[in-house]
Design a protein around this nucleic acid. Structure first.
Lengths: 232, 232
DNA sequence: GATTTTTTATTGGTACTACCATTAGACCAT
DNA sequence: ATGGTCTAATGGTAGTACCAATAAAAAATC
């Protein structure tokens, strides 16, 4: 059978990057571990330092490693930092592959799934964290600290995802919020009182394990936000 | 107020990369455009070719540009290619030390949201594609071509995500399936008859715009699969 | 004249070398 | 004990040279 597949010459820095990727996948390299210095890596891989650096550049951009200069610097394996992915998604948006509406729309659907899971899986401690977040946001609103309050609101959704105790959902939520954080301007202070009341109602539904009430409250809140930003 | 923020020295290749990003954002550079050759860029930026290459490496990894060798090669602005983002998300997932159960669990929740959206948004043409996929899988099952059939089954879920017409959801689904593809061994042939029957029922629900029936059928199927792989 | 082969210029990929900039720790001075 | 200086380690940048692939132009062949 002439079942050929197209051939693409593998580039050296890709091979190097994939070797390191594999070590991460197999658990040989774990977050916090330090890679050898670039000069040593170049020697071990039998390539030039330039090539190693290009491999590291890709890994860094992927959020896999973090590079630090200086005496005890080096390339450290990170915990999963979604920042890089969020930036890539933003790039896609600018290229026309995605629109902001696509992101908020997807977020609405996914957040719905998150709420469903949070109702059944969240512990009382999880809900206490949500309550603390709401209180903090209220205080910041009174202090007119808009930026800090906006950050707290973002944290609320991440905390909610953490109620599901599923790392994949948490990761997706963090990524989506990273994107939205970069695009949204903070909501004005007048609106935030409504938001806080809505949050309190939502939390009550959660504690009562009332799926229907929780999802209804959340989607009402989100679609209201959606309309708010639609106008520009 | 001693309200200082940490200072980080900007690296040259980041500045270069951001300049190019900005040009994309302002629409000065559009998909299909070609950047000057590396040597020219180095001269224009007043930096070395190495540095320019590291900047290009990041942009390439972000899926913003695509590099081609040869006479009329160069760095071309891509249409939004989500492939790069998917790879980054996969890296993050591996870093999180997540288990197969985490992925299938998240997938179950998200696929539920996808089904809800697919019921209301899918067109008849979308559903025809699903039907064609099921037929193809059935044929491959008869031919005992396990690998090809497994690939078709994966494609089914991606096609389902495409029914939502939301690129973000499609991207997430593709990523999840990529992860699962790397881990799953193909299901044995005996089980596939059940799967195909389940798929046909599911499709009928979709065409009838019956949300409850569709979600029920899908989650029954998925949780059955989940149990199947739980045993190892 | 048409087709095939060869040459050539362009451009990304790799190698090597040298040096700069920053960091952490050791050591020293006040 | 505080602050300054020195030193080694390590990422960041510069520059040069050459390799490898590619497409167009030129030459050779039929």
């Amino acid at each position: 059978m002439h079942d050929f597949s197209p051939v693409k010459a593998p580039r050296t820095f890709e091979v190097i990057g994939n070797q390191i990727r594999d070590q991460v996948r197999r658990g040989i390299l774990k977050p916090g571990d330090k890679l050898p210095p670039e000069r040593t890596l170049a020697e071990q891989f039998g390539s030039s330092r330039n090539t190693v650096r290009e491999a590291l550049r890709s890994l860094e951009h992927a959020g896999l490693i973090s590079l630090q200069k200086g005496a005890h610097g080096g390339a450290f394996i990170t915990d999963g930092d979604p920042g890089a992915v969020a930036q890539s998604i933003q790039d896609l948006m600018h290229l026309g592959g995605l629109s902001l509406a696509d992101v908020t729309d997807a977020r609405l659907l996914i957040e719905n799934a998150v709420v469903v899971a949070a109702v059944t899986r969240g512990t009382d401690e999880d809900f206490d964290q949500l309550a603390a977040n709401i209180d903090a946001a209220e205080t910041l609103t009174r202090d007119r600290d808009i930026d800090a309050k906006a950050e707290r609101n973002i944290q609320f959704h991440i905390l909610l995802a953490e109620c599901t105790h599923n790392p994949v959902l948490i990761l997706i939520m963090r990524t989506l919020m990273d994107v939205l954080r970069a695009v949204h301007r903070p909501v004005t202070a007048e609106d935030t009182d409504d938001i806080i009341r809505s949050r309190r109602r939502f939390l009550a539904h959660l504690r009562a394990r009332d799926t229907g009430g929780a999802t209804a409250e959340m989607s009402r809140h989100l679609s209201r936000l959606h309309d708010l930003f639609e106008v520009h």
